[in-house]
């Protein structure tokens, strides 16, 4: 399946673009997506944390992703 991933902050800078299109196996989990992205962009592994958000909520590691989901990569937040 084809996913569009929104990138922010240092994750956007590491990947070098604000969105990323990626093909993954149908039903791929958030954890599986992160493993795929770590393989492509090793610098992501240096971050203190990296979460996947689905439809404006933090996704559980084993949550299956769907093509129509709004997916984003969330590096360590630092608001306030």
């Amino acid at each position: 399946m084809h996913l569009n991933i929104a990138l922010f902050g240092i994750a956007r800078e590491i990947v070098g673009q604000p969105t990323l299109e990626i093909d993954v196996a149908a039903g791929q989990s958030a954890r599986g997506l992160l493993a795929e992205l770590h393989a492509r962009y090793p610098a992501l592994a240096s971050l203190s944390s990296l979460a996947v958000a689905v439809n404006n909520e933090y996704a559980a590691d084993d949550a299956p992703l769907h093509e129509r989901d709004e997916i984003a990569l969330i590096p360590p937040v630092s608001g306030g």
Binding site: G9, S48, S78
Partner: peptide, 28 residues
């Protein structure tokens, strides 16, 4: 509210110094 905001809300701060810049909290 402010403590939880800092932990979960998707906002990122980049600090700019005279000699560089850093995404706050990005690295251990």
């Amino acid at each position: 509210i402010i403590d939880t905001l800092k932990q979960v809300v998707t906002i990122w701060k980049k600090e700019f110094y005279l000699d560089g810049d850093v995404w706050v909290a990005a690295h251990p």
